[in-house]
């Protein structure tokens, strides 16, 4: 059996959990199933997570990934956690805009901006 290719990397910064998608293209059912399994393993056991998805490596995705993000967001909110998306390239951002998912997800320019939103200056 060939080893599974890592689909995400996870980093903990301040009070945030940063999930970086490592693939340039996220398309096939297998990619999406592997992503869902990896991300759910982080979300399901935890509550009050500040989850940041970093799309900096992603150059192409299909509507199946949008569906995955919706499923993940439902689980995130069930667990009283927060979900932020960032580093989305302009072509992919256009997909979010056209589908009006910019109204569903909190989208930030980069990881720093997402973290800063969690820790507003007093």
């Amino acid at each position: 059996m060939s080893p599974l290719k890592p689909r995400i990397s996870v980093e903990y910064v301040e009070n945030a959990t940063i999930v970086t998608f490592t693939d340039e293209k996220i398309l096939e059912d297998n990619d999406i199933a592997a992503l869902q399994e990896s991300v759910m393993s982080i979300i399901e056991p935890a509550q009050h997570l500040n989850l940041i998805f970093d799309f900096g490596n992603v150059q192409f995705l299909s509507s199946a990934v949008l569906g995955l993000l919706i499923r993940i967001s439902k689980k995130v909110y069930e667990n009283d956690s927060n979900l932020m998306l960032c580093n989305i390239n302009p072509k992919i951002y256009e997909i979010f805009k056209i589908t009006r998912l910019t109204k569903v997800f909190d989208i930030y320019k980069d990881v720093n901006a997402a973290i800063a939103s969690l820790n507003p200056a007093e």
Partner: peptide
Amino acid sequence: DPRCGENLYKAGGRGLFLIES
């Protein structure tokens, strides 16, 4: 239309809309 009402929060139904867009 996947942009309207509850459809916005559904996991599927955006493929044809993207093709047309």
